[in-house]
């Protein structure tokens, strides 16, 4: 009698869906990918230093190319900042996916018994983190060099929203471009035409904020930014599976 119940219990344990036992939760898996990327980056500092030096150089070049005197500065600051972020962003996106591809880490990640979308969100969040770190350094440097106060709550919000949209599409396209023959060259070509709405809206909103425009004037680009973020995060979430599948 007792033997039968224990056998039945064993059977029940076997029948229990294995997903509960060995599948980590979505958030856990996502955070694991983020943690891995951040740990690797803070030990090597390859990506951040490259992005940072690159963006400072871009600002330097703009200084000579546009003759950033006080009058022009007012009107072009938003454009210069977003061009810098976009360029530095592609650098980071490319590198973060290329590292996975080169050393076969992507296969390891894909073999892990987690939802593929968790991998996408993990990569997107770590890319966003890198972009935000670079922005956090570029902003004060720009403020200092050109004597413009960039630390307004509204502007920081716009930069956050813009960066989210940019990395959401960028991570997906980078996952595609690293699998092609032309890889590094291809990402900006794929990304820029698709990311134009987010860049345009960000430039408009930042420019408006820097000019001291009223909130109601900035509402439209802000709405577009939010809509773009939501749409493209949802699309990327749905199609990421197709992009990485072998």
């Amino acid at each position: 009698m007792q033997a039968r119940t224990s056998a039945r219990r064993l059977q029940a344990a076997k029948n229990r869906p294995s997903s509960i036992v060995c599948r980590p939760s979505f958030v856990k898996a996502m955070m694991a990918v983020v943690q891995k990327d951040l740990a690797a980056e803070f030990r090597s500092r390859e990506l951040l230093s490259a992005m940072l030096v690159f963006s400072l150089l871009v600002i330097l070049i703009f200084n000579f190319a546009l003759e950033l005197d006080i009058k022009t500065r007012q009107s072009v600051t938003a454009g210069v900042l977003w061009t810098t972020f976009a360029f530095a962003g592609t650098l980071g996106l490319n590198r973060s996916m290329a590292v996975e591809k080169d050393r076969g880490c992507m296969d390891g990640l894909l073999l892990a018994p987690v939802d593929r979308a968790a991998i996408y969100f993990g990569k997107a969040i770590s890319n966003l983190a890198f972009m935000l770190i670079v922005e956090a350094i570029v902003l004060p440097v720009y403020s200092m060099l050109y004597n413009v106060n960039l630390f307004q709550a509204g502007l920081l919000g716009v930069i956050l929203l813009g960066s989210i949209g940019y990395t959401a599409v960028g991570t997906l396209l980078a996952a595609m471009s690293v699998q092609t023959r032309t890889r590094d060259v291809l990402l900006p070509i794929l990304l820029f035409p698709v990311a134009i709405p987010v860049l345009l809206a960000s430039v408009k909103a930042s420019g408006g904020l820097l000019d001291g425009a009223e909130f109601s004037e900035i509402l439209t680009p802000l709405n577009i930014l939010i809509v773009y973020d939501v749409i493209f995060i949802a699309v990327a979430y749905m199609v990421f599976d197709f992009v990485v599948e072998e």
Binding site: Q179, P193, P221, V235, F242, V243, E245
Partner: peptide, 21 residues
Amino acid sequence: RFGAVYTLLGGISAPITFMVI
């Protein structure tokens, strides 16, 4: 696969560009 994903992204992004401008 990649072509399909990219046309999908482009097909969503182009109307948004139009609206933004």
